[in-house]
Design a protein around this nucleic acid. Structure first.
Length: 556
RNA sequence: GUCCCAGUAGCUCAGCAGGAUAGAGCAACAGCCUCCUAAGCUGUGGGUCGCAGGUUCGAAUCCUGUCUGGGACGCCA
């Protein structure tokens, strides 16, 4: 347990025991003690609304209750140096600051383990994200989903969840047939022959490149095969290369997966037909109009959904149901899917399927990442300048850089539409939050370098209780918040809390830097105490940036 | 028509398991480098939290309705 957590815990216990001693409520009636950090420093370090919550139980005015409570509070045990009653009955606590400085030692002892917690309690959670079809390159929306999913996974891991990252490969549907047909057409075209692209074929440059590679490697060898054999070859070739490229692009984006799950494997194990049978046994399947239907309306969906089409093939939904059943059966306590906004209409039927199979819909949490719009010179950019098509993830990274791309995607809530300001992301100045945070880190590194050059022993045993200046206390409190911020971000699945937190921490650092001189050779004790504080801040900035996949440079 | 997301300062957004005077960045304005990186700091101004009801001691936060913007509503994937 971290220092701040301990202080809060003790305070909560003392508040409860004061309520009991004052006879304001019994143990059974006791409301949860809510401690909050007031925005206004005049309202202390912590405040509780206990008196208001007790108003109905004790049948007294909140202010009167507050007075009784305070009278019975053991301030020494609670390490409180001052208690005020304010407003409608808030009780404000001023904490004895000396205990706060311990956070520095805790951080330096724990290193990058600082901030971990047991909030997740080892719960096994699988996060499936990106899962783009292997029929082309990754685009803007994928980049957002990848950044979000990866950061969420990192944050939840740190908060004590047991996380697996999975990419679902749609390598079985008719979009893959279409891919093979598209490559086929481009192949003949590359050989100088006439061949029409299939209707709804993949028009992208990436397919043309693939076909050119095929010609370079194999010349016209494939023209001598039966068409069906050739298409099978192209299907495998296309899948392999496009998937490889996706994997590489993601790795360059600092996103890796624990497992890549193939849709085809579901068919190989007969799991798709199995899933339909299971639904049928439970009575949620019927035949109509020559097709097989899933009665998803029994579980709140708008309309029933087709599982097997008139032509005998499956819809997209059917293998997906089998896939989710398989995921559940792999023993995860919870599944999280990260989907793009264009799939949100799909949520109800997936939840319906899970319930029809006998599971709670709570086992599947679907996070939707909303649309991304690029802005440049104040105007909306939709198309790539080079290709005229949608902007790819790779182009975006090349244009604004990896750190800025990841930071910008993660700093916003996933369910808000995102206006991505290219000019701002490229700016190397204080307007750009990425640089602001990275600069704080570089600044600390610079101070440490100089301290060493001037002969300060930066690893000395120090008396951290010297850290009592206003800006120092602000930093200590912020550092102490970190484990709770990570735990909150994990529990609420809001990784955007991390960029916000680290921005605030950077702000506290810059503010401190301008107010106090760290290296003062005439006051070695204070210098060393401050150096130690700087090291602790550096650990936390590094760690927070690592969670969101952004580098912490030592020099800028 | 149905469903999902959003509507908070000039702009981009936090805050939403109810709590005190609603926050941040940018933009605007006024200051700060003989001193550890000015890629920084300090201060000022700026808000009917889309609108209307309701629940509550208390609502940006919960409920209902409504308006606006975006998206989704295939025997496509």
């Amino acid at each position: 347990m971290n220092i701040v957590g301990q202080i809060e815990q003790t305070l909560k216990q003392e508040i409860e025991s004061a309520v009991l001693k004052a006879g304001l409520a019994t143990q059974e009636e006791m409301p949860d003690v809510v401690l909050e950090t007031p925005k206004d420093k005049a309202h202390g370090d912590y405040a509780t609304n206990m008196a208001m919550q007790l108003a109905r139980i004790a049948k007294k005015a909140p202010r009167q209750i507050a007075e009784d409570l305070v009278e019975h509070l053991d301030t020494e045990k609670a390490s409180v140096k001052q208690v005020d009653i304010a407003g409608p009955g808030f009780i404000n606590f001023f904490i004895d600051q000396s205990s706060l400085t311990q956070v520095v030692d805790t951080i330096l002892n724990q290193g990058e383990a600082y901030g971990t917690s047991n909030a997740g309690n080892g719960k096994r959670v699988q996060i499936e994200f990106v899962s783009a079809n292997p029929t082309g390159t990754l685009h803007l929306g994928h980049a957002r989903g990848a950044a979000f999913g990866d950061a969420l996974a990192n944050v939840m891991e740190k908060a004590g969840f047991d996380i697996e990252r999975e990419y679902y490969i749609n390598d079985a549907g008719n979009q893959i047939d279409n891919l093979a047909q598209s490559i086929n057409a481009r192949y003949f075209q590359a050989l100088g022959q006439e061949m029409a692209m299939p209707e709804d074929g993949y028009q992208g440059q990436d397919i043309i490149d693939l076909a050119n590679d095929l010609v370079a490697e194999h010349a016209d060898r494939f023209t001598k095969m039966d068409e069906s054999d050739r298409l099978l070859e192209f299907r495998h070739y296309g899948l392999k290369h496009l998937l490889h490229r996706i994997e590489k692009d993601l790795a360059n984006y600092r996103v890796t997966f624990d497992s890549w799950f193939s849709e085809t494997s579901l068919y190989e194990q007969n799991l798709v037909a199995n899933a339909v049978e299971q639904l049928r046994e439970k009575g949620y399947v019927y035949e109509a109009d020559g097709a097989t239907w899933f009665k998803s309306t029994d579980f709140g969906d708008d309309k029933d959904r087709v599982l097997v089409k008139q032509d005998g093939s499956y819809t997209y939904l059917t293998p997906d149901i089998a896939y989710h059943l398989n995921k559940i059966q792999r023993g995860f306590d919870e599944l999280i899917n990260v989907w793009g906004a264009d799939h949100h209409g799909y949520v109800a039927r997936m939840h319906a399927a899970i319930q029809a199979l006998g599971y709670s819909k709570d086992v599947l949490d679907i996070k939707i990442t909303q649309m991304v719009n690029l802005f440049e010179n104040g105007e909306k950019v939709k198309m790539s300048k080079r290709t005229g098509k949608a902007v790819t993830m790779k182009e975006l990274i090349e244009e604004v850089g990896l750190d800025a791309t990841r930071y910008f995607f993660i700093m916003r809530s996933n369910d808000a539409h995102l206006d991505f300001d290219l000019d701002l992301a490229k700016t190397q100045s204080n307007e750009n939050p990425v640089y602001y945070v990275q600069y704080a880190h570089a600044r600390i590194c610079s101070m440490l370098r100089q301290a060493e050059e001037k002969g300060v022993d930066i690893n000395a045993e120090v008396d951290t209780s010297l850290l009592q200046a206003e800006k120092e206390v602000a930093l200590l409190k912020r550092l102490g918040d970190y484990p709770q911020v990570v735990a909150d971000a994990a529990e609420k699945r809001t990784p955007h809390r991390i960029p916000q937190y680290v921005f605030d921490l950077a702000s506290d650092l810059h503010s401190f830097y301008n107010a106090e001189k760290v290296i003062d050779l005439d006051n070695m004790e204070l210098t060393q105490a401050r150096i130690t504080l700087m090291k602790a801040v550096r650990v936390v900035i590094q760690d927070a940036l690592k969670l969101i996949g952004v580098e912490a440079p030592e020099k800028m």
